[in-house]
Design a protein around this nucleic acid. Structure first.
Lengths: 188, 188
DNA sequence: GCGCCCATGTAACTAGTTACATGATTCA
DNA sequence: TGAATCATGTAACTAGTTACATGGGCGC
């Protein structure tokens, strides 16, 4: 049920908002969905070419200026259909492969201080994210386009997850301290 | 700084707990860290072979029974060193590529009901996870091995994230309803 | 003229998935 | 005897990353 080639759907989605070049796509990804998505040129260009062959996207005529070899793509009807089909399907759960948890799972193999350092660093980074997100939220609320509520939902998700990280780090750090002290008590 | 080939470190970590075969590794992953990690045979076997060539793991002598071609691997000193080195480094933030958020970002392109269905399904699956985790928590608390606290930390993370999902789904569903009603008001 | 951003692309590689082939053991 | 599980592995593939090559346009 879950589909592979997520890059394809991300590109179809962005093109469904407005026509864009490969370069644009990369920029839009970085600037607007960068906190939960990434793409790179080495993948975007070949995939655009393939999608054109498959009739999902088409190259628009060069802009009047024609100043450069800018290949601007737009969705075709088939591309639109395929995008909407994917969009209506339920999304995967199971965000697999969490390296932080993998490290923590093996945490007993290093000294407590090292584990604490990892958690502290994680907490710091997420606190940082929270501050950035605050600014983004203000920005979204200002624009007020019809898409804005949906963008706001994704941002809320990001905020909640960062907050959850901070809280979990705090709790885990506390629990580690308790671990240490109960060890000491046993020794005495 | 962030290292690729996460499978390698997962395998080194598991072997650091006790020697195991490729088959064992797959089973351990599924049964104990399956909620945040996955591996498959087609990757495990080649990578074990490669690590043996690199001197990170070594094949133990066949067990006395010798009943079968079971290749049991153990860490070498070098493997141990490499594992600990990785373990001490801070973990990545940025859990990239969240398909749920990608869909939601484009949510305005489908009707409200379809978005609600996606969220409801997501909520349901996470509620389900929460129940499973409850059982796992009891299990961990019973065993009481020295590793148990660390395993408990990873599980707490899973619980928090599932809870966060449920809450966020609820809030987002509410917000969607508000969106609908404000549209209607404007129309009247 | 130099550095920076725009812009497209290819090549080489690594990681990871899926499907398949093979055969032993265990137990109902 | 036949299904389930144990056990190893290969082949073919897809996705995704990194590094590189190339060149135009713009502003200082």
């Amino acid at each position: 049920m879950a589909r592979a080639n997520k890059t394809k759907y991300a590109i179809l989605g962005l093109l469904s908002l407005k026509p864009a070049s490969g370069y644009d796509i990369k920029k839009i990804v970085d600037e607007s969905i960068g906190f939960f998505w990434n793409e790179n040129f080495g993948h975007i260009y070949p995939i655009l070419a393939r999608m054109e062959k498959e009739g999902l996207v088409r190259k628009l005529a060069k802009e009047s200026g024609d100043r450069k070899a800018r290949n601007v793509y737009a969705l075709t009807a088939r591309g639109e259909r395929e995008f909407l089909e994917w969009l209506g399907e339920p999304a995967d759960v199971t965000p697999h492969r969490n390296e932080l948890l993998l490290k923590l799972f093996f945490g007993r193999r290093i000294d407590r201080g090292a584990v604490e350092a990892i958690l502290a660093e994680q907490r710091r980074k997420n606190q940082e994210l929270l501050e950035i997100y605050g600014g983004v939220a203000r920005h979204i609320d200002e624009v007020g386009t019809p898409e804005a509520p949906y963008w706001r939902f994704t941002l809320d998700y990001g905020i909640r997850i960062a907050r959850m990280h901070v809280e979990w780090c705090d709790e885990t750090l506390k629990a580690l301290k308790r671990l240490s002290s109960s060890k000491k008590e046993k020794r005495s």
